[in-house]
Amino acid sequence: MSEPDASAATAGGDTPLLELRGIHKSFGAVEVLRGVDLKVRSGRVTALVGDNGAGKSTLIKGVAGIHNFDAGEYLYEGVPVEVHDPKAANALGIEVVYQDLALCNNLDVVHNMFLGREVMKGITLNEDVMEARARKTLDGLAVRTLRSVRQPVASLSGGQRQTVAIARAVLWNSKLVILDEPTAALGVAQTEQVLRLVRQLADNGLGVILISHNLGDVMQVADDIAVLYLGQLAAQVDTKDVQRNQVVELITAGRSGDIGLSPAMAEVAL
């Protein structure tokens, strides 16, 4: 597979924003990722699905620089890059919205949005500029506005929290936003709101990776679906080309009809 891909990468036009090839990662004796390939393109929502233990979180944490991959290629805009810590990922324009862990509850919205990248004026924090930029970004996401960007995160609804967490990710001219189960704890209306936001990010030209267990969400919002099965990529397919039950089969068995891992591979994986 490598020959045509390599030429496409240098040609530029159709270069994926993020491309992973043959990614391996073990924790001690446990091999969590076993040669995963993944492509994420700008302007598209790529859903990353798989059963518990399939390796989704490990893959994402590697992309974000929290873990280092043991082997494999990590290409960003067609160029091999080394991402050894979260700062390096941020510098490339990669932002992750972690499930439950995105925000600190008893501090306010502005503090949270600018953590680690505070704006200074001379020798002091520039609270006014940070506050104005936070408000502008939130308004730009066109969601029901918060009462105040100075209220503690604990006082926000679940949907508002996700909005703030996503706003935090797009504040930095990011190119790739990774969302870990953004709708897991939300009600119906708030889920719709957040999914609209996810769609909007891609429509604005960002690459989006959406990790979700909810296939309804995935089929509704994703352009393509990457299925992890026991540490391997079973398939990455366009959403319009598959049925929901095929995705379920891919998640549970690693293959569905002629899509997915070969029977032998799926067996070995077990």
Partner: peptide
Amino acid sequence: FTALGRRLLFVGRGRSVARLSG
């Protein structure tokens, strides 16, 4: 009034948030 102080506060109140923020 400094980024250092703000970061210390996050380390105290949301250690995982701070770590995941780099």
